[in-house]
C-alpha cells in the first residue's frame, strides 16, 4: 500500500512542468488530483520515477465564460465545477461533475487529469463528447488545440505527447433550445458507473432538431451512437423513436462482463439510461428546470 520510491518535483508554472517532463523523460508523470494516479502507485501498478506536481501552480483552476464558451483550467476540481453557477449554464456539465464518485474524490480530482487519464469508465469524456469541446495542450513547442473526439485515442491513450499537458478545456455553451442530461447507474457512490448515457438535444417545439448521444463504460472509450442520433433527429419523441434510439444504443455498446454486470445486462441497461437521459434532456431543452441524478443501487 506504499508506492515505490520516487522523486518529487514541484512545478512553478505549466511551462516549467512541460520542461521538467521533457528533461526527466518517460519515467516522469504529472500529478494533478492524484485520484487515479495515487491509487495505481499504491498498488504498485504504476511506478513512476519522478512526479511533477501541478497542484502548486496558481491560475490553473478557473471557470471563465468567453466568446459563448466556458473555459476550464486543467486543475479545476470536479467539486468546483459542481458548485459553479457558471458551469451550470451547461446543465449536463453540472450533472457530470456532481455525480463523480464522492466528496473526497470530487474535492481532489481535476477535469484535466480525468481527460488525460482516459479511463474507459471516466465520466468527463462521455459528457463533453456531446458538446463542442476542445482540449488545449501545452508542449515544449507551445500550445495547440485538439477537438475532444481526436484527443481520446483509446483506453488510457490520448493525443498528448509525453512532454505535453492539458492546460485548459473549452466547451461551447449550447444555443437556446438545447438541453442535455447525463445519467449513470452506479452500484455505490464511490465507484465508477456500470454504464452511463449522455444526451444533448436541440428542440424545435416538439421536434428534435439535433441530438448527440454518447455512452460511457460500455467500450474502451466513450461511444457516440450515430444511429440513435439519427433515430431522433427530425422526429418528435414518439415511443417508436425512443425505442429506436434505445435499441441503437444497445447495439452500439460493446461492454465487457465484470463485477459491475454481465455484458448482456449492460447492453440493456445502457438503452434504458439513454431513454431516461432523452426524457430529462428534452425537458431541459424546453427550458424546464429538471434535477437529474444518477441511479444508485
Amino acid at each position: 500500500m506504499y508506492p515505490r520510491a520516487f522523486h518529487y518535483h514541484r512545478a512553478g508554472s505549466l511551462t516549467e512542468a512541460v520542461t521538467m517532463l521533457s528533461q526527466l523523460g518517460d519515467d516522469a508523470k504529472l500529478l494533478a488530483g492524484g485520484q487515479s494516479l495515487i491509487p495505481l502507485m499504491k498498488l504498485r501498478f504504476a511506478n513512476p520515477g519522478h512526479l511533477v506536481d501541478l497542484n502548486f501552480i496558481s491560475g490553473t483552476s478557473y471557470i471563465q465564460e468567453e466568446d459563448g464558451g466556458l473555459r476550464f483550467g486543467a486543475l479545476t476540481r470536479h467539486a468546483e465545477i459542481a458548485d459553479s453557477a457558471l458551469a451550470a449554464k451547461i446543465p449536463i456539465v453540472h450533472d457530470c461533475a456532481a455525480g463523480i464518485a464522492d466528496v473526497q474524490v470530487r474535492n481532489r480530482g481535476t477535469i484535466g487529469g480525468s481527460l488525460a487519464e482516459a479511463d474507459p469508465s471516466g465520466d468527463w469524456a462521455v459528457v463533453l463528447m456531446t458538446l463542442a469541446t476542445e482540449v488545449r495542450c501545452l508542449g515544449t513547442n507551445g500550445e495547440r488545440t485538439v477537438p475532444l473526439a481526436g484527443f481520446v485515442k483509446d483506453a488510457y491513450t490520448t493525443a498528448l505527447a509525453h512532454d505535453e499537458l492539458v492546460s485548459e478545456v473549452r466547451v461551447k455553451i449550447p444555443a437556446k433550445g438545447s438541453g442535455g442530461a447525463y445519467i449513470a447507474f452506479k452500484r455505490s457512490a464511490p465507484v465508477y458507473p456500470t454504464a452511463s448515457a449522455a444526451v444533448q438535444l436541440t428542440m424545435d417545439g416538439d421536434v428534435c432538431k439535433d441530438a448527440a448521444i454518447v455512452l460511457g463504460c460500455v467500450g474502451l472509450t466513450a461511444i457516440k451512437v450515430t444511429d440513435a442520433e439519427v433515430a431522433l433527429r427530425g422526429h418528435s419523441f414518439t415511443d417508436k423513436a425512443i425505442k429506436a434510439a434505445m435499441e441503437a444504443a444497445s447495439a452500439a455498446a460493446d461492454p465487457q462482463s465484470d463485477m459491475r454486470g454481465s455484458a448482456d445486462y449492460k447492453r440493456t441497461l445502457v438503452g434504458a439510461l439513454v431513454k431516461r437521459a432523452i426524457e430529462a434532456a428534452s425537458h431541459r431543452a424546453r427550458g424546464e428546470q429538471v434535477e437529474v441524478s444518477h441511479i444508485y443501487a
Binding site: 452500484r187 455505490s188 457512490a189 463485477m259 444508485y296
Partner: peptide
C-alpha cells in the same frame, strides 16, 4: 477473488 477492492465489493453506504 474478483471483489478484493471496495470498487468491486461495493459495501453499502448511506446513499444506498
Amino acid at each position: 477473488m474478483l471483489t478484493s477492492t471496495f470498487s468491486d465489493y461495493t459495501p453499502i453506504t448511506a446513499m444506498n
